[in-house]
Design a protein around this nucleic acid. Sequence first.
DNA 1: TATGGGGCTTCCAACGATTGGAAGGTCAAG
DNA 2: CTTGACCTTCCAATCGTTGGAAGCCCCATA
Lengths: 132, 132
Amino acid sequence: MKDGMTIGDAAKASGVNAKLIRYYESIGLIPEAGRTASGYRVYSGTDVNVLRFVKRARTLGFGIERIQKLVGLWQDRTRCSSEVKRIALQHIDELEAKIAELQAMRDTLHELADACHGDERPECPILKDLSS
Amino acid sequence: MKDGMTIGDAAKASGVNAKLIRYYESIGLIPEAGRTASGYRVYSGTDVNVLRFVKRARTLGFGIERIQKLVGLWQDRTRCSSEVKRIALQHIDELEAKIAELQAMRDTLHELADACHGDERPECPILKDLSS
DNA sequence: TATGGGGCTTCCAACGATTGGAAGGTCAAG
DNA sequence: CTTGACCTTCCAATCGTTGGAAGCCCCATA
């Protein structure tokens, strides 16, 4: 084997857990790895690059399905950057929506917590709000 | 039955899906409902109030486990509001952390998308970042 | 060469909250 | 009596990740 490595080595090199690598393979996000005679998965430097790409994309919050598209575009020399940008903007929109949702929760809770004395008395605006 | 209603009625009255009501019962978030002779679950106005409390708490992003504590405090006349406030502040902290995480994703993506021409050319800073 | 330990394999399950479907029983109106 | 809307339970899928169990493989050391 030239630069073939085991799944553990690929995990260390890519930062993606070995279990997760198998999972990614099982759902078709990454191609099936080659195998040694005894059944061990074999990975190349190229495979590790793909794994790193996936990890970085996950860090940015992309879902698996979208990462699949991004990997496809990444490996397509004739891609249009507009296609990549479209996916990114779509993801940004979803992030914005989620952020707004969480901020609304936080703001409401903040108001309620501010109004709550937080002492030994049972009187509590937070519970009052929840039961209204 | 005085004000006994079916699970469908309770769902309409509380805004909590019938399936979800059964799920909440199965995990012990709400007590087991009474039953008619033929096995139908029976709900009272009090039960609906609990369901509404749960729904509102879910809307504010509280997890089931914490909602269980909140329901317990709600029904405990000798509670300290400090205990409720502590749970709320803890939840706010988690919301803040999640918001910050999503904002970091959004900001990074925003920069990358800004730098991307988004035309028919394959050159793409977004993919470049992901593969770095 | 035997033995041990660590890494590899597959399969199955759990997380949290929700939703969906299938198969079958019940109720009320027409 | 039939029809349709409701109810019941059980099982499965979602999303991404992690954990465990049982068993095989490989390498180093005694």
